[in-house]
């Protein structure tokens, strides 16, 4: 399953779009629940089953979602679930849902809907680079299509109702995945994170909530969902992101001005290791890819494209590797397979 998806990079990681040297992707997700039905954390199997059927039918009628595929969670095995998490198409929470859940994925992975995660629907829209407006626009269209067939829980005071009070209102979480290697190197990252959180935004690691920072990739998102319009939320996140990009660019300029040789050395060494290593852990790979990405952005290095780096970030993850090789691998075997894959890709450039 998911072979088509495994063989593509996903339109949101193509490395185009605005500010793509620093911003990998922009995402908007909307939480929605169907009126009169118990929310997933407490719902019985029969209710959950109904929800899956209603949403599948609504997707069938949607023009925006006419091209994609709807999967039932029972049909998705464990490896595929890890694979989908690595592609940011499902959340780690969705991995643990037991039965009667569903997942819609559009052909280019720019749209996805999780059914029966914490809420009945989690609509997700992804774009490459910094383009929250485009991501929001698509999410709104999908929401309109769903609302044409489904009556959502909505309160004139509170807005869209969700299982967790932190999502009530717009039900919207907008986020950007951003590469801040410069600020990490100049050790300014903590004060920048401080600044961001004071503005009411949340900073997280690569996989979102509760995850560690890998490869200097940070996820920045809005914290509150009630009291502001969807456009306001997207615009203020975009504004802050533009500011973070400025900080990052300044840090990069300073690095080049103060330590040009050291930076160039770091970038070329990273490339050298990636091209020659026989054993590579996930963490080392992410950190080396981060250095090469920085080198490309600083024009120190042009042997590899940002797209190839994005591809490797994706493919070098455990479930992707196993799908690529076509068999189950333990951690040590994965490290060898990872080194092989990275070498193969970098030598073919």
């Amino acid at each position: 399953m998911f072979d088509d998806i495994a063989n593509q990079i996903g339109s949101w990681l193509t490395g185009d779009g605005e500010e793509s040297a620093i911003v990998l992707s922009s995402r908007v997700r909307l939480a929605r629940n169907i009126k009169e039905l118990t929310y997933p954390p407490y719902a019985e199997a029969s209710v959950r089953e109904n929800v899956v059927n209603f949403v599948a039918a609504a997707i069938g009628k949607s023009t925006e979602l006419s091209q994609g595929t709807f999967y039932r969670s029972e049909d998705i095995n464990e490896l595929d679930r890890f694979f989908l998490i690595e592609r940011h198409l499902i959340s780690p929470e969705f991995m643990r849902v037991e039965s009667a859940s569903g997942l819609y994925i559009s052909p280019q992975e720019e749209a996805a809907i999780m059914v029966n995660e914490e809420d009945h629907l989690r609509i997700q829209s992804l774009c490459s680079g910094l383009s929250l407006r485009q991501a929001l626009e698509r999410a709104m269209k999908i929401d309109d299509d769903m609302a044409a067939s489904l009556d959502f829980d909505y309160d004139t005071d509170f807005g869209f109702l969700t299982s967790c009070p932190t999502n009530v209102g717009t039900g919207m979480r907008a986020s950007v995945l951003i590469h801040l290697a410069g600020l990490v190197l100049t050790k300014e990252i903590d004060s920048v994170i401080d600044h961001i959180t004071k503005l009411g935004l949340v900073v997280r690691g690569f996989y979102g909530e509760g995850s560690d920072v890998w490869g200097n990739l940070f996820q920045v998102s809005n914290q509150t969902t009630l009291g502001r319009s969807e456009n306001d939320i997207a615009e203020s996140l975009e504004k802050v992101t533009t500011q973070i990009i400025e900080f990052e660019n300044k840090a990069r300029e300073r690095l080049v001005a103060d330590a040009e040789n050291e930076i160039a050395d770091k970038v070329w060494r990273a490339h050298g290791i990636l091209k020659n290593a026989r054993v590579l852990t996930s963490e080392e790979t992410m950190s080396l890819l981060s250095a090469v990405r920085l080198g490309i952005a600083l024009s120190i290095f042009d042997l590899v494209s940002i797209r190839t780096i994005n591809e490797l970030v994706l493919l070098s993850q455990p479930a992707h590797l196993q799908k690529h090789v076509g068999e189950q691998l333990d951690a040590a075997e994965r490290d060898v397979a990872r080194a092989n894959l990275v070498r193969e890709r970098l030598c073919n450039v």
Binding site: D155, G169, T170, T224, T225, L226, S229
Partner: peptide, 12 residues
Amino acid sequence: IHGSNLHRGKRH
């Protein structure tokens, strides 16, 4: 949580 309890976004 949100500093407000009145929805100002999209209407359903």
